[in-house]
Structures are given as structure tokens and as C-alpha cells.
Simulated scan of single mutants.
Amino acid sequence: MKQIQMTQNPSFSLISTNKIIQMNDVWTSYDSKSFALEGINLSIDRGTNYAIVGQSGSGKSTLLKLMNGMMIPSKGTIKIDYVTPNMNDKKFKKMMHSIGYIPQNLGLVKNIPVIENILIGALPRLNTIQSLLKKFPEHEIKEAQRIISLVGLTGKEDRKVYMLSGGEKRRVAIARALMQKPTILLADEIVSELDHVTAREIMNLIADAQKRMNLTAIMVHHDMQLALEYANRVAVIKEGHKILEIGVEGETIVDFQTGDMNTEEIMEMYNDDSEK
């Protein structure tokens, strides 16, 4: 076999992979007595839109918390771009700004204006003095204004968040996450409690931002139809287990996990669960 010799100072950079998030046999618990997630295997391609669907209490939000380092698995391994997510780890702390996280409650500061909420996403790029005084450079303010236009909030920069509608608040939360200049966007039930028209406006906004910025978007949903409409792949979580991974190819729902279920069986199974 021919050997390839490598120079001492190779010109190539670190190995990259299409798989930006990888989970292998992940189990996790909140109380050390029962498991919120059991044996999760999950692989997400870079630059795609991935949805996690399931009923309340199924473990969907827990998956996002594992991805952004808010929780550590009881066993199994998680890699985000080859780095293990853990807020106490220096290597992960350096890359935390590249993960935009939108929690269910949005995490906005309700009594300050829209633009100030959005500029919070730029704080990791400021020096200590700038950060303490919240003194943002002019180029960061211009970037915030550009993102305000991108998410459709032009003219509302100075309006306090508590004065906004539900859909507008979600736009602010998305804008703040985009201000981080992330490579991964995690969104937990961001369209819940919205009417169908507003929900699709928000989903279109995220889909557009994902393409513009080459983001990997990972979104928790309870609406299977909406998830299938926007996501490249959909993981179905039930009682802490990943029971399906599906996607749409043409007009067919494809089962990537077991390969032995047709479209009708998949939708019927989910609809049955939704009625419980």
C-alpha cells in the first residue's frame, strides 16, 4: 500500500464535516430517577432545516438544551462541530456565540426598545468596557438596523417590546439571534399560539434567513404538517424516544429511520398521538 507523507506544516485547516450535530446513544435525566430522553441517536447536516416534533413532555425542549450546553447527558456523546457542548468547558464557551437559541418564552427584555433587545446579540463581540456600558460601535448599530429591515420591523426600532404583537415579538427574538452571527439557530416552539397566517410568516422568515446566512436551523414543533412543509428532515419524539425520522421527497413522506412505513401510516400514527 502506498504511503502518503505529510509535511510538518500542512496547508489544510481542521477537518470539517457535513454533520454539524451528532448524538450517539444519549440519555438524560432531570432528577436521576427517570430519564427524559433515552437512547437518542441523531445526526444533522450542516446548512439544513431540521424539525423536532412531539407532544408536550416528550423531550423535545430537552434536546435543544443538550445542544446548547444547558444540560449534560447522563450517558452518551454529543458533538457540535466536534466540540462537546458544556457551558463549563472553555472550548465550548468560545463557540457559544455561534449558537443562537430562542427559548419558548423568547427571553426578551420587555421594557426596553426593539433595537436594544436586538443589540444584546452583539454583546459577545464587545470588549469589557463596551459590554458593561452597553456602548455599541456604529457598525454594530448599522448591522442591527439591517437585521430589523430583514425581519420586517422597520419603523418599530424604538418601540418597547411589551407594546408589540405576538408575531412581532417573535421577529425581535429571531433578529436578536441573527445579530449573534450564528451558524446554528435553535428555536423552541417559536410559532406556538400563533394563527396559521402569522405562523407561516415566521417560518418563511426563518427559512429565508437560513438560506441567506447558510444557517443550520433546528426547530421544535408540535405541528407535523408545518414541520414537514419547511424542514429537510423531521425527528418524531415520543416519551423520550426518537421513534421516527422522516422527510418529504416530491409528494412522498420518506421514513429514513425504519424504512418500512408508508405516508398514511406515519400520519395516522402521529394524528392518533395528537388526539391523546
Rank of each mutant, 00 (worst) to 15 (best):
R171T: 10
M213L: 13
G247S: 09
R46V: 03
F256M: 15
E140R: 07
P113Y: 03
V248C: 13
N262I: 03
H222M: 01
K90M: 13
I148A: 00
I20M: 04
A199V: 01
A122N: 10
Y30H: 11
V83G: 05
H139R: 10
N262C: 10
M96E: 15
H139Y: 13
M87S: 05
A177P: 07
K276T: 11
A209Q: 08
D81W: 14
A144I: 03
R233Q: 14
D260C: 13
L106M: 08
E38Q: 13
G167Y: 03
A187W: 00
I72W: 11
A187R: 03
M261L: 14
Y101L: 03
F136Y: 15
N49E: 15
K65V: 04
Y50H: 11
I174P: 03
H139W: 11
S98E: 11
I20N: 02
A51T: 04
E189R: 06
E251H: 09
Q3C: 10
I15V: 13
I129T: 11
K142E: 10
I218F: 10
L228R: 02
K60S: 05
L185C: 02
N49W: 12
E275W: 06
M87L: 13
D260I: 14
K75V: 06
Q104P: 07
D89V: 02
P103V: 06
